[in-house]
Amino acid sequence: MADKVHIKVVVNGVERHSEVEPRLLLVHYLRETLGLTGTHVGCDTSQCGACTVHVDGQAVKSCTMFAVQADGSSVTTIEGLGSPGSLHPVQEGFWEMHGLQCGFCTPGMIMATVDLLNKNPNPSEAEIRHALEGNYCRCTGYHNIVRAVQYAADKMAGKVGVAADD
């Protein structure tokens, strides 16, 4: 076995020290070493975005990154975003606008959306669709997902009124 490497990663605000094999993917480190199973393995080929997490504030696909590459970084997963009693506005948007069916893609969708709204707090519908090109939903289509993002953008901007269902 290749020599293990010591890594220090701050995950959802908690400093973690681990000895990892270099080939351990970040997504497997999160799920299997740390038990954070909210991050999903979907296609495992860098396409579907179900494994999206934030590394140093940027959304990345954790199936296409080794845990050793995150050494010294700060990682945020879906577990670090909100809690059942206190949802993040983007989580609330997916709940309110029914932006999911089976829910498998949802953690990745939400992490990609938070990244989008960090960079562009008031995106157009075209910008939302472009920003979610790396996240696949195989259940519902994207209509309500776009609405969920719009809800979250409004909520985060402090707008109370939300576009009604039509």
Partner: peptide, 8 residues
């Protein structure tokens, strides 16, 4: 690609 690809 997409934003996650462009981040890396």
């Amino acid at each position: 690609g997409d934003p996650m690809v462009r981040a890396k």
